[in-house]
Simulated assay, not measured.
Amino acid sequence: MEEWLPSLKTDTPQEGYELAIKLARKGVALTQPDAEVRKKLRGIYAENADSLTLASQVIAIHYQTVAAANDYWK
Rank of each mutant, 00 (worst) to 15 (best):
W73N: 04
Y63L: 05
T12C: 01
G16C: 03
K22R: 11
P13A: 04
A55N: 10
K74H: 10
E18L: 15
A69I: 03
N70W: 01
V58F: 01
Q57R: 08
E36I: 01
Q14V: 09
I61M: 12
E2F: 15
K39I: 11
R38T: 01
I61K: 14
N70Y: 01
E18M: 12
L8H: 00
T65V: 15
A35S: 12
K39T: 13
W73Y: 08
Y72A: 07
V58T: 02
S7Q: 12
K39W: 10
Q64S: 15
E47N: 07
R38Y: 10
Y45L: 06
Y63Q: 09
W73M: 02
T12Q: 08
A35D: 12
V58S: 02
T10P: 00
I59F: 09
T53D: 15
D71S: 14
S51A: 13
K22D: 09
K40L: 13
E18K: 15
V28C: 10
A67H: 08
A69P: 07
P13M: 04
Y63C: 03
D11T: 15
A29L: 11
L19W: 02
A60C: 06
L52Y: 04
L19F: 07
M1D: 07
V28I: 12
L19N: 01
A35N: 05
K26C: 15
G27V: 02
R25W: 06
E3D: 14
W73S: 06
L41R: 11
A49N: 06
I59T: 04
K39S: 13
T31M: 13
G27K: 05
R25G: 12
W73D: 09
L41G: 08
